[in-house]
Design a protein around this nucleic acid. Structure first.
Lengths: 261, 261
DNA sequence: TCGTTTGTGCTTGAATGTGCTCATTATATT
DNA sequence: AATATAATGAGCACATTCAAGCACAAACGA
């Protein structure tokens, strides 16, 4: 039996049972386990299955996303990476402003229960943090936008004009070198703009898909940011511009960084 | 079964019941509880579920989790009666202010999905109403008091000074003819006082146990109320005083009432 | 024939997955 | 508020599986 025949056979067997053992394959195909492992490695590189310890499984078996998780949020894992990076910037005693958004919500979830003051305009973030003992929570008020569960408007901005925080963690839908940071809704853009005014450091959290996107309402220019946390380095063009404007860019993989911006 | 298969299975089971026990998972997946805990830890890190003591819950579930205050509520049934009475006073198009508290939370839950504007300083009420399509929600901002999940303080009152509503539904801990309406916390009392200023009609929702009680911080005099909704008629002394001051008293059993006060 | 390439199997140290124990912490009970 | 009960996390031990390097053999072209 040729190697390619064997690989086809492996895929056939796998599709029947959804998961399969290296040892079983070795027995039934009458080759050593080493050979099977090499085959599985090839097949995984071709994206045809997912290896596990002791065997392999189909992608349907491996991926939780499609039907399982309610929100078909494809970037859930990346957002968690970004959230971890962001949380790493937080120090005990800090006063933070968390904008509404899924990434900042993840941040709130993994925020350590240390002495902190958190300001937010996001209802779910508020609910999440309301149970924490060592976190002092200040909600911004205002009208609720139901799509984003964010509070916006004049009342919100009225409070923002009266506070000052150490770090603002901002979400956005698009980042473009020329058009700046943008979002679809103008009321939210206005609120986000007010948020930027309240913070010494403005940190944008955005996955790589946001680079190059442009949406209706402009929030600010790229130069108004102190730091961008993302999951994948943007193109050299973006990077050099960020460097020129002294904006720190933090992808999740690296470890040590300076904490200025 | 491989670890990844097992994790997929965990998510599948979790999505069916919204919450799940470590012990049940260990039994049905035939591994030790230690292993299940490790799986849950991984899944939590990926942002796919929220761990609790003894198991895990979905994020949707997490925001519904009843607060401590609500659990230990002996008068739940009475409060539901009061809430029904209160909701009966609401008309389409009304602008309402809902104070924080378990009775007003019940109100929010049974509020018909008609054209309404609701202002509230309660985080759980906000969460409850955020899903309603025909209700425009305005959150008051401010610092969160963790016992009551109410927003209080200067920022809250700043917004209150800028709004006006048709009806204020107020909660309190004590009602006494001489000492007035009282609550244990002075910050909340101050906020409630500001609420009273914003409304044409001030409706107090309070079960019968509150009559005669006096707490630390005074909110207002009895005469400042337009209406009291309760579950059991108070003593003749109270009733005659209320009548004298033209305050409507509404126990739940009766049906027809005039809607002035 | 030789040297090279390709496929396969073996060996070994390292990595991974799992379950157990026990001190600590969270929750429930009184 | 104090105690009892249960759940957790950290560390350890054990078994299994893996990756990488080496060895061997068959296939192939010169």
């Amino acid at each position: 039996m040729f190697a390619d025949e064997r690989k086809t056979q492996i895929l056939f067997l796998l599709n029947q049972s959804q998961s399969i053992l290296v040892s079983d394959l070795a027995t039934s195909l009458d080759v050593s386990e080493t050979t099977i492992r090499r085959d599985l490695q090839d097949l995984e590189e071709q994206g045809l299955l997912k290896r596990t310890h002791g065997g392999a499984i189909t992608f349907q078996m491996a991926s939780f996303e499609p039907s399982m998780v309610e929100k078909a949020d494809f970037y859930a894992e990346q957002k968690m990476q970004i959230a971890k990076q962001a949380v790493a910037m937080v120090k005990t005693g800090d006063t933070l402003l968390l904008d509404s958004g899924t990434t900042t919500l993840q941040m709130a979830r993994i925020l350590p229960d240390q002495n902190l003051t958190i300001v937010t305009n996001s209802l779910p973030i508020g609910t999440e943090l309301s149970r924490r003992k060592n976190i002092k929570l200040v909600m911004l008020g205002g009208e609720l936008r139901s799509n984003t569960e964010a509070l916006v408007g004049a009342y919100c901005e009225m409070i923002l004009q009266n506070i000052h925080v150490d770090k603002v963690f901002l979400g956005a839908n698009g980042i473009d070198l020329f058009k700046g940071v943008t979002t679809p809704n103008s009321a939210e853009a206005s609120t986000k703009r007010a948020m930027i005014q309240t913070g010494r450091q403005v940190i944008l959290v955005a996955d790589h898909s946001k680079f190059g996107q442009i949406h209706f309402a402009k929030i600010c220019d790229v130069k108004d940011l102190s730091c961008i946390i993302t999951d994948e380095l943007p193109s050299a063009e973006y990077l050099s511009e960020f460097t020129k404007q002294n904006i720190a860019v933090k992808p999740p993989l690296s470890d040590a960084w300076e904490e200025d911006g």
